[in-house]
Design a binder for these strands. Structure first.
Lengths: 370, 370
DNA sequence: ACAGGGCCGGGAAGCGCTTTCTCAGCGTTC
DNA sequence: GAACGCTGAGAAAGCGCTTCCCGGCCCTGT
């Protein structure tokens, strides 16, 4: 890889790269006001015992309101902030949960990170989860991973950094859900696990979504339907394909397998139209691929929706990047992520709780492409 | 917002939404093998004292190799994992650092999260930082934020969850760098701070990058150059514009301000060409906008690079999504993030260390668009 | 008015780990 | 052969916090 590192790149492992443009700048060392005050100091300042300060901080009901006020003033004056390590040592709670995003290996070293941070889906998940967790004052630690560092992730979880796990895993052979489950740590998975694990999960009715797409295309009078599916080793990919086909059982439905990326959608559309030039209705298993497919259709001179109607899946921001605007099946990703967080918090609060699954219904969002 | 929540949406605050499709599933409670073993148990199993176990775990040199082996076997047998809370209570280290991604407010509630997880830039940052941190066994806590929850972020940092902060902040008015600095926690910022704060930062030579773009366009014989800039309240946006103009001081350079998004690039290109239809060389301040601009140019019937040559900035994955493939100025984002991590670790290891800045050189990546 | 009960606040015991201090045991040297 | 130094391991002191337990106080009931 060619890089533009000033003064040369890293010269092997271990040592820091030599850099030409290091500038020491003048500075006055920040005052660092006497380290962090401890609870004892607050107690002394307020003239009470440490236990009382603790009660005030944790909102115990049985503290006289005058005393409570004094303590709060002392906290403000000293600038006291509880030490999380000490607290979680005794409470056995970290007040944070992990959002583990597990992607299958890809040839390129960092591409899984690239995919995670490029697909709007994950942003929606994060937004939904943080939104649900924030009122409970629980922090989210985002951990992207592929199978090469499952071990690291497991170790992280075992070390007690987090109270529970939200696990986003779509790949069929992914062993992480099982490993996490065996850890015994509270966890919620983002989709029905491929093997029967007794774990809570939240999912969308994939087949119903595919059916909504089929119905839309049929209602537009389209008769020669086809689909670009997701990877068939991912349950959601398979379910959407099967749902689409099942609802059109009386006719043949050509399909091409895609990879849920923009470029993959473009390629797949080209292949599909080469083999089946008369297609007039197309269901694409996610919006990103639909965006690529639309580009291919345009380059092939097909008008959308006149010549060929296109329905996507997700209702992600990519649907709005499309021209024409993409008609798509909406999954309420934010709400699903929020529900995952709620279920997880219930599991954390009640350790013995039986796993449960929650299924959300998709809806059709009609725009221009179909 | 219309959602497809099965059985209705949340019914007010506090209570969980009623959901139609909750299924309790049979399960055998996982065996949970006798909670977590403690160091004492390992010591007993190995027939040594707790202190010795600690020495083995932390690689103290003065442990007899036979004893070391016994302890390691005991650790393996008991499945012992150190408790991070207890450890960091005494070491005052958490072995994790925060990656705070601070985005300016946007009208839409969650859009900043959407932007963060959609722009490939952040994925590259994350990849670079995790890559550099992993060998040191330091974990990365990703914290996206906009100005509405600066307070939460600061509190999180003060609580001692992390040993240091990698701060990605581009917005000029962003007060977070200053707040973090005042906290006294080790920190490294992703770009030259807009106000003179004594803090370490890593940056790319923005003006040089703009100059590379200008040189490329000139060398292709283009004479009527223009640019789509980034937001001018973001230093990188301003620097790229000024660098481009400064290098072309002898001629007028029309420019339109964009917002670093795909859609913004498309709009900007339309406006630019409406006002200056004869432009034959275009510098776009990031790849995402360039992608949008290319789409606009295509719809306007301009051939790229024949009628108009286009150079982007970043060399992100979006450059490869473009048709034609985008010629662009590469910033070594992964390496820069890795360097940020290295500098941060140095600050953590040596608390009094003076701040320093590191500047990387951009390079031109020639593809098809110019 | 006095005894009993309820409440509030303080003392003290750890949570699991690291680290210093100390001492036992060994080899070494004159 | 005795004194010395060195190595290696154990004892113990906390890190900062929560929480149980108990003593003292005030309030109520009779």
């Amino acid at each position: 890889m060619t890089t533009g590192v000033a003064g040369g790149g890293p010269d092997g492992g271990g040592t820091r790269p030599h850099l030409a443009a290091i500038t020491d700048r003048m500075t006055t060392r920040p005052a660092r006001g006497g380290q962090h005050p401890t609870m004892d100091q607050v107690a002394e300042a307020a003239g009470v015992s440490r236990a009382t300060v603790s009660r005030v901080i944790n909102g115990a009901p049985s503290v006289d309101s005058k005393i409570r006020e004094m303590v709060q003033r002392a906290i403000a004056e000293t600038g006291y902030v509880p030490n999380v390590a000490a607290r979680s040592l005794v409470t056995r709670r970290s007040n944070s949960v992990a959002l583990v995003i597990s992607e299958p290996d890809r040839p390129d070293n960092h591409s899984f990170l690239n995919r995670i941070f490029t697909d709007p889906y994950f942003g929606r998940i994060t937004a939904g989860a943080t939104g649900a967790l924030r009122p409970h004052d629980i922090h989210l630690v985002v951990i992207p991973t592929d199978s090469t560092d499952h071990h690291q992730v497991i170790r992280y979880l075992r070390q007690g950094h987090v109270d529970g796990v939200l696990l986003i895993s779509s790949h069929e052979q992914d062993t992480l859900p099982r490993q996490v489950h065996e850890l015994g740590i509270p966890a919620v998975v983002s989709a029905r696990p491929t093997s029967p694990i007794a774990v809570s999960f939240v999912d969308v009715d994939q087949r119903l979504g595919a059916r909504l797409a089929a119905d839309r295309l049929l209602s537009l009078g389209r008769t020669r339907l086809a689909t670009i599916s997701g990877p068939l080793d991912i349950p959601s990919g398979l379910d959407r394909l099967e749902g689409f086909r099942a609802h059109l059982a009386d006719r043949p439905v050509p399909s091409v397998e895609g990879d849920f990326t923009r470029a993959g959608g473009e390629t797949a559309a080209r292949r599909l139209l080469a083999e089946h030039p008369d297609v007039d209705g197309l269901f694409v298993a996610n919006d990103l691929m639909a965006e690529g497919a639309l580009r291919a259709l345009q380059e092939l001179g097909r008008r959308v929706p006149d010549d060929i109607a296109v329905v996507g899946f997700d209702d992600s921001s990519a649907a709005l990047d499309c021209r024409p605007l993409l008609t798509t099946v909406r999954q309420p990703v934010e709400e699903m992520a929020a529900e995952m967080a709620e279920v997880l918090m219930a599991h954390i609060a009640t350790p013995g709780r039986l796993p449960r699954s929650v299924t959300f219904q998709p809806t059709l969002v009609v725009r221009e492409s179909a």
